[in-house]
């Protein structure tokens, strides 16, 4: 199949009229994935922003079949949906799940791990806005070091989140999943290509897409895409793929010096001092040493 572009994707909108905040990164991730997957996609969404903004009865914003699962059960409901469609003799369908970072890395990780183990034929997309944004910004295990959330407030002694962001991509890949990828709403072409690729691989697929949240990150609504790009360009969010036991980078770090502007531009990091930023830099550099050593270059 050809690479999806702005010109050849469908004009249909499958996620439209929703009540997400202006400039929401997560809604862009859902919109573009569904445009690639098409009308035969059945979406499963747990509690989280995208279910809260998409299903306000009677305002129902998915044009394709979509339903809300329990918070912990995104992947297990997807398994059920896939088995049901197969039992009915349906053809050419895609079962896709859209869960947030909390619904994936904290609450739904057991169901996700089970689904990868069963290797059911479906696509799990984690839109990562780096905290529980739907309930007003509480820390999840994908919240980065130093970020202010309501449960990791910044004070004199402790400055925001003291824990590192969980490496969900490599945790999933360690299962030996047929296909896993990281993506960003800042590079939608790359994201669409990965969704298309996932739809063509048989078995379980996982895509982790970074989706900045203007409300929770403290950036302007029109800066969402810029910050998503910056996260990748400064090396904090490497875009990569995993398949056949091999990791491959799909985009190199552009400018390590961008990290300071990325951190300083967001309200959730404004309490950080220079040594904290140097710590974040050292962690990033250690990660890239590992990536350069063992991942395939783009």
């Amino acid at each position: 199949m050809t690479r999806p572009t702005a010109r050849n994707i469908t004009e249909d909108e499958y996620f439209f009229g929703h009540k997400a905040c202006a400039g929401c990164g997560g809604s862009l991730a859902v919109r573009m994935a569904l445009k690639v997957l098409g009308s035969r996609a059945v979406a499963v969404l747990p509690a989280g922003c995208m279910s809260a903004v998409g299903f306000n009865f009677p305002q129902l914003c998915f044009a394709n079949n979509a339903m809300i699962s329990t918070f912990a059960g995104t992947a297990s409901m997807m398994t059920g949906v896939e088995a049901g469609l197969r039992a009915r003799g349906e053809k050419d369908y895609q079962v896709v799940g859209f869960a947030g970072d909390g619904g994936t890395a904290d609450i739904g990780i057991q169901a996700l791990s089970g689904a990868i183990d069963r290797n059911d034929n479906m696509i799990y997309i984690c839109y990562d806005n780096e905290a529980y944004m739907n309930t007003g910004t509480q820390k999840s295990s994908l919240t980065p070091f130093g970020a202010y959330t309501t449960t990791t407030p910044a004070g004199v002694k402790i400055r925001g989140n003291i824990r590192e962001k969980k490496n969900m991509f490599e945790i999933v890949a360690a299962h030996g999943i047929p296909y896993a990828a990281t993506a960003s709403i800042g590079y939608v072409d790359d994201y669409m290509a990965k969704v298309r690729k996932a739809s063509e691989v048989k078995g379980m697929k996982y895509i982790h897409v970074l989706a900045p949240c203007p409300t929770g990150w403290g950036i302007r609504p029109d800066e969402t895409v810029e910050y998503a790009r910056m996260a990748t360009d400064c090396g904090l969010w490497p875009l990569a793929e995993y398949g056949c036991g091999e990791y491959s980078l799909t985009r190199s770090m552009k400018d390590p010096g961008l990290l300071r502007a990325y951190i300083r531009g967001q309200k959730r990091f404004r309490h950080l001092r220079d040594p904290d930023i140097e710590y974040i830099e050292s962690k990033r550099d250690a990660r890239w040493e590992h990536i350069n050593r063992s991942w395939k270059a783009p």
Partner: peptide, 14 residues
């Protein structure tokens, strides 16, 4: 060039 269409979170650009 359709960049606006591609990046609109609400799909309001056609």
């Amino acid at each position: 060039c359709l960049q606006c269409y591609l990046y609109c979170p609400d799909g309001t650009i056609a």
